[in-house]
Computed example of a mutant assay.
Amino acid sequence: MSASGWSEPAEQEERRRQRTPWGVMALVLLTGLALIRNGSGDFDAGPPQPASAAAPDTRTGTGTGAAHAPSLPFSGADRVRIPSIRVDAPVMPVGLDADGWIGAPPSEDAGLAGWFTGAVSPGEQGTSVIVGHVDNRRGPAVFYGLGTLRKGNRIDVLRKDGRTAVFEVYGIEVFSKAHFPGDRVYGSKGTAELRLITCGGGFSKRHGYDGNLVVFARLVAVD
Rank of each mutant, 00 (worst) to 15 (best):
S4Y: 06
G5F: 09
W6M: 14
S7H: 05
E11W: 13
E14M: 12
R17E: 14
Q18A: 14
Q18R: 08
P21Q: 07
A26T: 11
A26Y: 03
L27E: 15
L29A: 14
L30G: 11
A34K: 08
L35T: 12
I36H: 12
P47C: 02
P47I: 00
Q49V: 12
S52V: 13
A53K: 06
A54D: 10
A55I: 01
P56G: 07
G61W: 01
G61A: 05
T62W: 09
G63W: 05
G65S: 14
G65L: 07
A69L: 02
A69D: 04
P73N: 08
S75A: 15
G76A: 13
G76M: 10
R79G: 02
V80N: 07
R81A: 13
S84L: 00
D88K: 05
P90W: 02
V91F: 01
L96S: 12
L96K: 13
D99V: 02
W101H: 14
S107V: 15
D109F: 11
A110N: 05
A113Q: 04
A113P: 03
A113V: 11
G114W: 08
S121Q: 10
E124D: 10
G126F: 04
T127P: 02
V129H: 02
V131E: 08
G132L: 09
V142E: 00
L146T: 06
L149A: 02
L149G: 00
K160S: 13
K160H: 10
G162R: 15
T164D: 08
E168N: 00
E168K: 03
E168V: 01
V169F: 02
Y170S: 13
Y170C: 09
Y170H: 15
I172C: 09
I172S: 08
E173C: 01
V174P: 01
V174S: 12
S176G: 12
S188C: 04
K189M: 09
G190N: 05
A192V: 08
E193G: 03
L196G: 08
K205Q: 14
R206N: 09
H207Q: 13
Y209E: 01
G211K: 01
V214K: 02
V215A: 08
V215K: 06
V222A: 05
V222H: 04
V222L: 04
